[in-house]
Design a protein around this nucleic acid. Structure first.
Lengths: 208, 208
DNA sequence: GTCTATACTGTGATAGAC
DNA sequence: GTCTATCACAGTATAGAC
């Protein structure tokens, strides 16, 4: 490779497929799956519609390819949770990882959260929604009462939604670190008493 | 009105327009705005596609008509908040009204929350999103730090999302009351310290 | 007020030239 | 690998019969 070795790192995304995945992910997040046409994606990426369909055999295939990395990491995260929950690690230790995972894959999370229900026939969406259910189950194993589950749900959903809702803002401003730490604080606070209630020797409050 | 006075209450929805609004609202919530065609709505309601377009001059007009009642009530709710906030009523008193409002207009809330960003060009959606911002501002007037705003955001967004996410389930089961009370508890707990922090004389806990 | 028929646009996807 | 041309189809919306 004589000529190409001159530019080593500059071009972050060279492959057309990767570029299309990235553009599609952003447009799917901003305008929805059905609200984004292959033509729009092709225009934004500077390709023809047919070229897009050359790299991905269908619109759905492009969608799946764009979401795949996030879903894979989420799956990996869940495995680590299940593994650690068998030991006696405190539940709030996973909050940091959870928030960071959401931050890293903001766009994918946005799509899954906001369009998951309406796109449930697409396989990877179904998979992602199943993983989200696993998150809930993993975090709330041994949380029987409705109030406890609601509490956990508010924590997880609230954190996810705050990140997702503020995604366009976060892309510009750089207060991500501040948001991250605030989220970790609040979610931890919501989750910690749940861990305490799991030990019956604590004479805690029994809600009405 | 001699003949029609025989059936007083039985038919809940008689008017074709009202019936179409109701059917459309449900289908828009379940399958999305772009994911629901006029043909599908017409079929589900037992009319022709053209009949739908007779009652509503366009798909967007039907959408707006379906969302209008919820948006109107939300607007009314916000006026009551602003009015009461000027007096020294505690902030957590609005939580009950807020949760009940979400419960009453679950489908509309579902649409606004899940599809609001992608449908921001539709006027009534824009209006609704503006109202939601007003909710946040009303609740968090005088909450300067990022952490406080995040805390409030998690409470409101978490509550809304829990209700919205469980909407299909809630339509069947009747544990709505239980979910309602649990939500009121959690949100109140999240919001109360915010009210306390506004009064410096309270030597309350200041979490790290 | 409801229908059938139709116009028009945009969509996802395929075939084939270069 | 990228393009133009074309396809079949679904979408919204209109016109006119009944």
């Amino acid at each position: 490779m004589p000529t190409s070795s001159a530019q080593p790192i500059q071009r972050v995304v060279n492959d057309a497929s990767a570029e299309l995945r990235q553009v599609a992910l952003q447009m799917f997040a901003e305008n929805g799956y059905t609200g984004t046409s292959l033509q729009q994606i092709a225009d934004a990426a500077g390709y023809s519609k047919s070229s897009v369909l050359y790299h991905f055999r269908s619109k759905e295939a492009l969608f799946e390819a764009a979401l795949a990395p996030a879903v894979a990491e989420l799956d990996q995260f869940l495995d680590s949770i299940v593994e650690k929950l068998t030991s006696d690690v405190r539940r709030d230790e996973f909050v940091v990882d959870f928030v960071d995972l959401l931050l890293e894959h903001r766009l994918a999370a946005h799509i899954i959260i906001n369009q998951g229900q309406t796109l449930s026939d697409i396989p990877i969406i179904d998979q992602a929604r199943g993983l989200i259910e696993r998150i809930g189950e993993s975090f709330m194993s041994g949380l029987p009462t409705t109030k406890q589950r609601i509490r956990l749900g508010v924590a997880l959903a609230g954190a996810a939604y705050i990140l997702v809702a503020s995604t366009p803002t976060l892309l510009e401003g750089e207060d991500i670190v501040e948001v991250r730490e605030a989220l970790i604080d609040v979610v931890t606070e919501l989750i910690t008493p749940l861990a305490a209630e799991r030990r019956p020797q604590t004479g805690a409050s029994s809600p009405s």
